[in-house]
Simulated assay, not measured.
Amino acid sequence: MPCSADPCQWDTDGASEEQREVAASKCWPCPAITQCGAFAGANREVHGIWAGHDRSKLQGRKAAKTKRTEETK
């Protein structure tokens, strides 16, 4: 698995957009991508690249959606 060789590569803190995209692209051929995504979801990971997705971006979208929902109430 690519992430086991260099776990720091999947840390998004301080990473450029290009670095994030390169790391995420390395996930797609991984045989553990499904389990990786399930683990990240079950553990509510909010940082790093998990199963080809930047979890910090997912968290940002959820926060924005929550804010819009609260504003319409």
Rank of each mutant, 00 (worst) to 15 (best):
A32G: 06
K57G: 04
P2A: 07
G60A: 15
K67R: 15
P31R: 10
K57E: 05
A23I: 13
N43W: 05
A63Q: 13
P31G: 08
P7H: 09
W28R: 13
G37Y: 00
Q19D: 14
A15E: 06
A42G: 14
C30Y: 00
W50P: 01
S16R: 07
C36R: 00
D13T: 11
A15R: 07
L58P: 00
E71S: 15
P29F: 05
G37L: 02
C30T: 07
L58E: 00
S25F: 08
Q19I: 09
T69K: 15
C8L: 10
E45N: 05
S16K: 09
A15K: 10
T69P: 00
A42K: 11
P29D: 06
Q35T: 11
E45C: 05
A24T: 04
W10G: 01
P2E: 09
A38C: 05
A5R: 09
A32K: 04
W10P: 00
H47T: 04
I33R: 02
A64T: 09
E45L: 07
A23R: 02
D6N: 11
Q35I: 11
C36A: 01
R55S: 01
I49F: 04
R55M: 08
K57V: 13
H53R: 14
E71N: 15
A42L: 13
C27N: 03
E45M: 10
Q9N: 05
D11S: 07
I49H: 01
I33S: 01
E18H: 06
W10E: 01
P31L: 05
K62L: 12
A32L: 15
T72M: 15
A23M: 10
A63D: 15
L58Y: 05
R20W: 04
E45T: 03
P29Q: 08
I49V: 11
T34W: 12
D11M: 06
T34I: 13
N43I: 11
R68W: 01
V22R: 15
D54C: 12
W10L: 04
D6S: 08
P7K: 11
K26M: 13
K67E: 14
D11A: 11
I49K: 00
Q19T: 12
G60S: 13
D54E: 13
A63F: 04
A5Y: 03
T69R: 14
C30H: 00
E17S: 09
T66M: 14
A24V: 02
P31T: 04
K62T: 02
T72F: 12
T72H: 15
K57Y: 05
S25I: 03
T72R: 15
A40Q: 06
D54T: 11
A64Q: 14
A32Y: 04
C8G: 10
E70K: 15
